[in-house]
Amino acid sequence: MKLQTATRLGLYATLELARDPAQTLSSADLAERFGVSTHHLAKVLRTLSNAGLVQAERGASGGYRFTGNRRRVTLMDIVALFEPAPGNRAKEPGEDTAIGGALQRVLQEIDEIAEATLRSVSLETMLKRPTDR
């Protein structure tokens, strides 16, 4: 499954901050940790902040802190902030034909399995077993 870069960065940042909700990390700290662009990550952190998953702390030791519930927040909650919802995407040409409809049903099955998987894994579960396959 291919995730957009923003989604991947959102997952990295949320999981890193959720490891220790008491820690505050700047976007530069997080960018360095994952070897990604600070500019891109700053935008992702604003989205996470608007969703209430992280909070920006001001001051000299400012940065971001995890404010969600590790047991309740799932990977899907973060993915949904950055990826278009399956039901909300624009209709592709040909979808109204019999072949297009049949193809759509297969793609929807794949989407449903992917969504069920992402929705079943909480941040707590991810952080409990970071080295598992």
Partner: peptide, 18 residues
Amino acid sequence: DRKDHLILSFFRAQGMVA
């Protein structure tokens, strides 16, 4: 059931994967 997210999460939390 893949729509039963509660029980899916439970088994995931026990360490089960697909």
